[in-house]
């Protein structure tokens, strides 16, 4: 058992299990930082997975497949952007609707192309290559860990670096963070919050697309209905635990991947009821979300204490009902945008 936990296989297989979760978590991270809850990552991943693998098979090109997967991911995100930014729907509710749509849409695409509804295993995709470095990959542990990984492993590392740089060092990053923290304040200094949110959602779509492509073009070479199997949601939980930091998010995504792999791998080394093992990833998600809620509450409390004078002033005004208030906010936002435009 201990041997199993510290084995090379465990380390490497956990990374493999963590990769789709990691992409989903990064996708959640960028949209959350811009202040949009995108729970449609799961759906984006499955649509991206089916589009990518089919194009890869028919075009016999993994690069084209990957591109299409990413485009499909962005398209799904743009649907959310359209409904939540342009039509001002609740992003959570449209996310639910889009997930429902994606379940049917992915199978519909599969059926209209191949005439089957289960999986595309008879039309194997050209796989995204591995980055194998001769000699280096024979180094024990490290070789398998770093020098014999899917190309998307390196893309994920790059994404972590990219997200950190984007959020911390670029103008767009500052705008994203500002919009996420307080859209009104951001708008008041001339930031087009809607455009910023749309950009963040597009990046979110790219990352979700990569996650889908990893499942159907790298780890497996076909799409099967339901193959994303909750990884998009677990990614959101990992992001919540990572509290908006790409590196912490990466750590927790790995942890989720490890638990996921443990649930599978442990069945081969110890006879433990699999039903209990299978609950581990979900149990961890719940624990993660509880921690997240506690931390968030503590933060908000602190923020409230810091903002006390401002708060009192507000309370002097009669409070409009909540719905009205949001509508008022929206009005203000558009007014702000207008004034910025003029």
């Amino acid at each position: 058992m201990i041997d199993f936990l510290f084995s090379e296989t465990f380390l490497i297989s956990s990374i493999t299990c963590a990769l789709p979760i990691l992409f989903a978590a990064f996708a959640a991270l960028i949209s959350n930082r811009a202040g949009i809850v995108n729970i449609n990552i799961e759906g984006s991943m499955s649509v991206a997975a089916v589009c990518g693998t089919l194009v890869s098979h028919f075009a016999q090109s993994w690069a084209l497949g990957l591109l299409v997967a990413v485009v499909a991911g962005v398209a799904m995100s743009m649907l959310l952007a359209g409904s939540s930014l342009v039509l001002k729907t609740n992003s959570f509710l449209s996310g639910i609707a889009l997930n429902t749509l994606a379940t049917g849409l992915s199978v519909y695409i599969l059926y209209s192309v191949l005439g089957v509804k289960g999986d595309s295993s008879a039309a194997a995709a050209v796989a995204i290559p591995k980055v194998s470095i001769p000699y280096l990959k024979d180094i024990p542990v490290l070789g398998g860990l770093l020098f014999d990984q899917s190309l998307l492993f390196w893309v994920a590392i790059l994404a972590a670096v990219g997200l950190t740089v984007l959020l911390k060092c670029t103008r767009l990053g500052t705008k994203i963070r500002a919009t996420g923290l307080n859209p009104e304040a951001a708008a008041s200094v001339g930031i087009n919050t809607r455009a910023v949110k749309a950009t963040a959602l597009a990046i979110c779509g790219v990352l979700a697309g990569l996650g889908g492509a990893f499942l159907s073009m790298s780890y497996l070479h076909y799409f099967s209905a339901g193959m994303v199997a909750g990884r998009g949601f677990i990614g959101i939980a990992a992001e919540a635990m990572g509290m908006g930091s790409p590196w912490l998010t990466m750590l927790f995504a790995y942890l989720f991947g490890a638990v996921d792999y443990f649930a599978v791998g442990a069945q081969t080394v110890l006879a433990f009821p699999y039903e209990l093992l299978n609950t581990l990833p979900y149990l961890m998600t719940i624990i993660a979300l509880v921690i997240y809620a506690v931390v968030k509450n503590a933060r908000e409390k602190r923020a409230k204490q810091n903002n006390k004078p401002h708060k009192e002033q507000q309370e002097a005004d009669p409070q409009p009902p909540e719905l009205l208030q949001t509508e008022l906010q929206e009005k203000k936002e558009t007014e702000n945008e207008k004034s910025v435009a003029s």
Binding site: L215, Y219, S224, M227, A229, Y261
Partner: peptide
């Protein structure tokens, strides 16, 4: 339905 998990196992 979780075919990635099937492969891992």
């Amino acid at each position: 339905v979780d075919s990635p998990k099937g492969k891992t196992l």
